[in-house]
């Protein structure tokens, strides 16, 4: 760095010399920003309680209506898993995570804070990367907590019926991982849409439309349609939460486990890339 010749300002305060620019400082700043909004803790806390309660209710239903020894073991394995993270839980996580992700970036645009942020940190790619990293970590924590607590609590409810599982079961591990990772994937999708749309209501509505309603337009009868369907996070979660497809209706083009993991990864990476690219290029 060259020393400017005409500036003669002498620092009068103890802010110290400029240290190396570290991503760690940006991560810490984004962490402060996220948690200094009261709504963050409320939305995540209340929705986590709701998700866990909904799953417990499902496990309780099975406990009340299941006679020990009934049904074949593979069916009951799927039932026990399904109770610990239901479709309702997945829908709630999807909408909450997608909205939190969208608001993480729209909150800056709608308020005008983005200009203050970018004057403090002109390296826009670093700002958005840091924001996405903090969002991912927080939503992964949210996913692990909701899916993990739901699983342990629901299997405890089902323990007496002898269909309860432990995490050591390979099917159980994949099921919980798919549920836990669903939250950050949806949050990052919302993040990208927020960066593209920059309007609070518009970003939240389109996030819900894309994550929730778009999969309904496709089916597994035709190759192209099945490919698009399998590229949706919701469908990927559905496939990953199925132990196998022996008890489902046969379809022409079923999803694969590997493909579903790839869908998760692709949405996460593409979302960050889109957000970084649009913020980097646009005028503020």
């Amino acid at each position: 760095m060259t020393t400017p010749t005409l500036t003669t300002a002498t620092p009068s305060t103890g802010i110290g010399a400029a240290p190396r620019t570290r991503l760690r400082d940006l991560l810490a700043a984004e962490w402060i920003k996220l948690w200094s909004l009261r709504s963050t803790a409320w939305v995540l806390g209340l929705s986590a309680l709701f998700v866990i309660a909904a799953n417990l209710k499902s496990a309780r239903y099975t406990y009340d209506h299941y006679t020990v020894g009934e049904g074949d073991p593979t069916t009951m394995l799927q039932v026990a898993l399904g109770d610990s993270f239901t479709v309702i839980a997945a829908d709630v996580v999807m909408i909450v995570a997608g909205s939190v992700g969208a608001l993480a970036v729209v909150g800056e645009y709608a308020s005008g804070l983005i200009r203050t942020t970018l004057v403090a940190v002109p390296d826009r790619r670093a700002v958005i990367t840091a924001k996405a990293c903090v969002l991912t970590v927080v939503m992964l924590g949210y996913g692990v907590l909701t899916a993990g607590v739901s699983f342990v609590a629901c299997q405890a409810v089902l323990a007496d019926t002898h269909i309860g599982l432990s995490l050591a079961h390979p099917a159980a591990l994949r099921f919980v991982a798919a549920a836990a990772l669903f939250a950050p994937v949806c949050a990052l999708a919302g993040f990208a849409l927020g960066a593209l749309i920059r309007h609070t209501a518009g970003a939240v509505v389109s996030t819900v439309l894309v994550l929730f309603f778009l999969p309904a337009f496709f089916n597994e009868r035709y190759r192209w349609s099945a490919d698009l369907l399998h590229a949706m996070p919701l469908q990927a979660w559905r496939r990953l939460s199925q132990v196998d497809l022996t008890h489902t209706l046969p379809v022409a083009h079923p999803a694969t486990v590997a493909g579903s993991w790839a869908t998760y990864a692709a949405w996460a990476l593409a979302s960050v890339a889109v957000a970084v690219a649009v913020v980097h290029r646009r005028d503020h």
């Binding site: 400082d25 700043a29 402060i32 920003k33 200094s36 909150g107 800056e108 203050t116 942020t117």
Partner: peptide, 27 residues
Amino acid sequence: LLDAGDVHGGRSGAAHLRALARSNAIP
């Protein structure tokens, strides 16, 4: 200071400044 409105209303003034300071490694 471009526009006094370029802040998020949901944060306290102190939290706003703390985040700004931290992003630039200012104590």
